[in-house]
Design a protein around this nucleic acid. Structure first.
Lengths: 218, 218
DNA sequence: TATAAAAGTTAGATTAATCTAACTTTTATT
DNA sequence: AATAAAAGTTAGATTAATCTAACTTTTATA
């Protein structure tokens, strides 16, 4: 059985190599930066994970997850997202509060717990941030890929997911009454700085380019 | 913040010195036996816990929890019992399956989670084994103290708690359709071996002295 | 009360996870 | 292509948690 620490390395590797993070290859430094550790530390751990056949790489080369490693990482992600859903929907946490707690809960080892929790939540496909929850077989529901910034003028869309899960962003969304499922119409784009004017309910609001690049829509 | 390991030592000490375990003093060997560790290991840890002022003892003497140590142990117990209740009542675990999982969940650090869980469960006073759940202030609802074995012949009583939480015992109770709240009438006691004949619902059953010493009733 | 048994402690070793400092290899840039 | 920068590795140290083996103190008993 893997330690929490080992699980965290695999999860980080999954994240870094799944182009959520922008790129597809991961090196020692990327991992170290992502985990807040020193490259030397990561190097040591990678040796052990390679030994145990959870990762694959050659000296000075890029690191990839093996099938076994990816399966574990996906399962940890499944637990993380189920717990986030539980915290929001059942215990009324707000979506900016769930992450840290889910970071702990994702390491609880009990298949029965995971499956019962899934059932209790009625087998959700997406977590409170709109991220897909892997199924027990490792398959993932489709992830929204359209950025709000790429929606044409006068088009309407529905918020499907957030690309940025930082508290500041989530609280800002809260303040604007925007959440998963909110209908948005793009009214105007300012070419000067990429700002976008949106219709949200009866309100007309202006948001930055950075904002429009942080929301995924259907 | 304490490690899971440190929390487990404090919890064990609380258990051993709260006469649930029969006695009120705990030594290195008792702790080692209870935790499945070697006395030398426990000795080392006790030094650190003393350093941090969670326990108090003098060399070769008996160990007691300080106020701070007891507060932490009680809080861990609170979390353990709330999670057991959650697993049974919400996720339909049977009462012999919850312990191991609760052993993991009890270490999750989030006051908000604990309080929200308590609220969601409607502030239960007792867990699925009939053990009192400490309140946020550390106070405990009263614990049943009457053993089934001490109930007089022809008296009726209600099962309040189990003294033994081993799977074998809990599954046996399940098989006999006895749970917390079950009404029992003591029909006869066999002086030869301490066996007791009980009326449970419409059934008349005979149980051992050991059994009658493992159930607490009101 | 002397002494054997039980309880508790110390010393030294091991493993996991981390660090810093120094070194090597790869890559990117002039 | 030479060389500077970035990336990756190694060596040696530290801390937490565990062990075994040997030793000391307390307690129980003959």
């Amino acid at each position: 059985m893997l330690s929490n620490t080992e699980e965290n390395y695999l999860k980080a590797l999954l994240y870094l190599t799944t182009d959520e993070a922008g790129k597809k290859e991961a090196g020692t430094n990327d991992l170290a930066a992502h985990l807040g550790l020193k490259p030397a530390t990561v190097n040591d751990m990678l040796k052990r994970l390679k030994e145990k056949a959870y990762v694959s790489y050659k000296k000075y080369g890029k690191i990839t997850l093996t099938r076994a490693g990816r399966d574990i990482a996906v399962f940890v992600m499944r637990k993380h997202r189920l717990w986030e859903t539980f915290l929001c929907e059942v215990l009324a946490f707000s979506w900016d509060e769930v992450h840290e707690v889910a970071e702990q809960l994702e390491h609880i080892q009990s298949d029965k717990l995971t499956e019962r929790l899934d059932k209790f939540l009625n087998y959700p496909d997406y977590d409170p941030h709109g991220d897909p929850i892997p199924k027990p077989n490792g398959k993932m529901p489709p992830r929204a890929t359209t950025l709000l910034s790429s929606v044409a003028i006068q088009q309407s869309c529905t918020v499907a997911a957030v690309k940025d899960t930082s508290s500041v962003f989530l609280q800002y969304l809260e303040q604007l009454s925007i959440g998963i499922g909110t209908k948005i119409r793009v009214m105007e784009k300012i070419s000067f700085d990429g700002s976008v004017i949106l219709q949200v309910g009866k309100e007309k609001i202006t948001v930055s380019e950075k904002f429009a690049n942080s929301l995924l829509v259907d």
